[in-house]
Design a protein around this nucleic acid. Structure first.
Length: 472
DNA sequence: CTAGGGTTAG
């Protein structure tokens, strides 16, 4: 009933906008008609035009929309809100337009006749959560919510976006506090708290918490979990290795006709891989019609961690054939898969071509793979050269990888170099001193042994029990 | 009246 009160809903010009109009020309024609018919003076048609332009793939869409907007004499909150969320959802890759969205929000505050409403906030909180630069602004925005929204406006959308925002900046206590204040959370809110505990997965307690929350949600029985809820649940099961709970989730989804979409399948692959059922992982992977890089990465990781390096590499080639772009994670997985099956040259080749061929900038982890690759193959000198030529500071993982290569292939000199660096990076780890001392002993460098003992004393390290530093 | 939230790997 209420929808029919919108007099513009069946307007043919607007219907053209809502259909697929692809070229700039089409938008300009619609724009011209909206002006000549006077529709431009009405908020709704104007907003339709703006959001159609902003959701298009035209390279000039943002500036075009802003040009139109600049000529609007008295923009309403509704227009601002649409503009803000369209910009954030369609033009905010890498967060480069968050600033623009905030300046539009500020304009709402500056215009005396209007004020923000509950639609103004969710997309802004979402943007603030996705980039640490904007966390401060998100917190400030929270105070605005309390200041400008009256309790009836403070709805589940705003609350869900707040819970999710605080979870992305690691404030899980705040998430829980906000969530517990809500007497009847809707599905979106349940999902935001489930995902919040899901992403704090550094302690297993939070995965247990996801299982508990999930059953709390079901106890009320008013709320039916959807795909998003199950992604959180299955991820938690994967983290805990809770195979039977995971299987239950999988079966529930199938029985209740929930879609095994790419998010769900990725979490199922992790579950099955972590529980040691690689065949199940393959099965859900194969049955997924539209795979993205995340699914592939999960499946490649599955093969690689179970020792199937060649299958991992085959899958990598399949992903390329499908026209998907490998990302930095793919490259880590695939280079280390090469390393594990002894395809040293192939691995090096992948490393050296990753920037040019796949557009992935080598990061510290990739150098780690390279060092591992060369080190396992006994090319210890070469590995050291690579570490020295890296554009960033090598970390302890890298030096340790080199160290273990020197131990497997008997190279005391480079072992010494690696340990010197390890001791600098981790002066607290007594084992490093012990190993270095042993290296010196093996080399008959007794003054080295003495130096290590002095170094230990200077750094306040006691000999660990059961380990002996060679006595001179 | 119209608009907004909750999903992806070491």
């Amino acid at each position: 009933m209420k929808k029919s009160s919108n007099p513009f809903i069946r307007n043919p010009i607007l219907q053209i906008l809502q259909s697929k109009c692809k070229t700039l020309d089409t938008y300009q024609q619609a724009h011209a008609q909206i002006i000549t018919t006077g529709l431009i003076l009405h908020t709704y048609p104007l907003t339709q035009l703006l959001s159609a332009i902003l959701s298009s793939t035209l390279p000039t869409s943002l500036s075009y929309a802003l040009t139109i907007f600049d000529r609007v004499p008295n923009p309403t909150t509704y227009i601002f809100n649409t503009l803000i969320s369209s910009i954030l959802t369609h033009h905010n890759h890498h967060g480069q337009r968050t600033h623009l969205a905030f300046s539009l929000y500020n304009q709402i505050l500056c215009i005396r006749a209007i004020k923000p409403n509950s639609y103004s906030y969710p997309s802004l909180f979402k943007a603030c959560g996705s980039n640490p630069i904007w966390v401060k602004h998100g917190r400030a925005l929270h105070t605005h919510v309390l200041k400008f929204l009256d309790p009836t406006e403070y709805d589940q959308f705003v609350q869900a976006s707040l819970v999710s925002f605080y979870s992305k900046c690691g404030k899980f206590g705040v998430c829980r506090y906000l969530f517990d204040q809500i007497s009847e959370p809707d599905l979106g809110l349940w999902n935001s708290i489930l995902s919040a505990y899901n992403s704090s997965a550094d302690d297993t307690g939070s995965s247990m918490e996801v299982l508990c929350l999930f059953s709390d949600m079901q106890r009320g029985s008013k709320i039916k979990p959807n795909e998003i809820s199950f992604v959180a649940l299955i991820n938690a099961c994967a983290d805990l290795g809770a195979f039977s709970e995971g299987i239950w989730a999988h079966l529930y989804m199938v029985k209740n006709n929930l879609k095994l979409n790419r998010f769900v399948v990725t979490s199922l692959i992790d579950l099955f891989v972590n529980c040691g059922f690689l065949e199940f992982a393959c099965q859900v992977f194969d049955e997924l019609p539209k795979k993205d890089i995340f699914c592939y990465n999960a499946m490649i990781r599955g093969f690689a961690t179970h020792g199937y390096g060649h299958e991992a590499i085959d899958l990598f080639n399949k992903l390329l054939l499908e026209g998907l772009a490998p990302d930095d994670v793919t490259m880590v997985l695939i280079i280390s898969a090469c390393s594990h099956v002894g395809l040293v040259d192939e691995g090096c080749e992948l490393f050296y071509s990753m920037r040019e061929r796949y557009g992935v900038e080598p990061k510290l982890e990739h150098y780690g793979c390279l060092v591992d690759l060369l080190g396992r193959a006994g090319r210890v000198n070469e590995a050291l050269e690579k570490i020295r030529a890296m554009p960033m500071e090598p970390n302890a993982v890298l030096w340790r990888s080199l160290l273990s290569a020197t131990r497997n292939h008997g190279n005391l000199e480079i072992g010494e170099v690696a340990l010197e660096h390890l001791i600098k990076l981790e002066p607290e780890t007594s084992g490093n001193y012990v190993l270095l001392s042993n290296v010196y002993a093996d080399m008959n460098k007794w003054e080295g042994v003495k130096r290590v003992r002095r170094l230990m004393k200077d750094n306040g390290i006691e000999k660990a029990q059961g380990m002996s530093v060679v006595d001179v």
